[in-house]
């Protein structure tokens, strides 16, 4: 297969220099190498959004990005949202609204919400639904997730 490449990129504000196979997915790098297991693998094919992270500020499916595409990239995962012990306001709103059931979809859902609110701080309900249209949830029926994002937007 390919020769290993030296990859320089930033994860949650920390610079990383690692040697790895260029065909490895960002999801594999995060979970298997960096042990950041907050990012989940559902479908592995861009359909479910449970692997959503921010790449240069934009929400992407980590299962559909490979190492060779990551030179100098800035990645933020769910682990990078809070400050130390303090969780992020979006995370807080999810807890307060009871928007979490089994929790599997939630890291991805929160990363999509973060990307949405960074771009559009006061989205309408429709815009929120469109913003999380790439994230599937088998448990909640979405309405509490939408309320949580509305709440987080209000409290910003």
């Amino acid at each position: 297969m390919s020769d290993l490449i030296n990859l320089n990129f930033t994860v949650n504000g920390e610079k990383k220099h690692i040697k790895l196979d260029p065909s490895m997915t960002l999801l594999e790098i995060l979970r298997n190498i960096l042990k950041l297991t907050g990012t989940k693998e559902g479908c592995g094919k861009g359909e479910c959004g449970s692997c959503t992270v921010l790449l240069n500020g934009k929400a992407v499916n980590a299962c559909l990005v490979i190492a060779s595409q990551l030179e100098e990239a800035e990645i933020i995962t769910i682990e990078g949202l809070g400050k130390g012990e303090e969780i992020h306001p979006i995370q807080k709103a999810f807890i307060e609204e009871g928007a979490v059931q089994c929790g599997f979809c939630i890291p991805g859902m929160i990363m999509s919400a973060k990307a949405l609110l960074d771009e559009n701080p006061h989205p309408s309900e429709e815009e929120i639904k469109w913003g999380i249209s790439g994230n599937l949830c088998r448990c909640t029926g979405y309405s509490k997730i939408v309320s949580a994002i509305e709440k987080a937007a209000k409290e910003r």
């Binding site: 992407v60 499916n61 999509s112 990307a115 994230n135």
Partner: peptide, 9 residues
């Protein structure tokens, strides 16, 4: 096209 995540890539 797809979803926000797909459209970003």
């Amino acid at each position: 096209v797809g979803s926000p995540q797909i459209r970003n890539r």
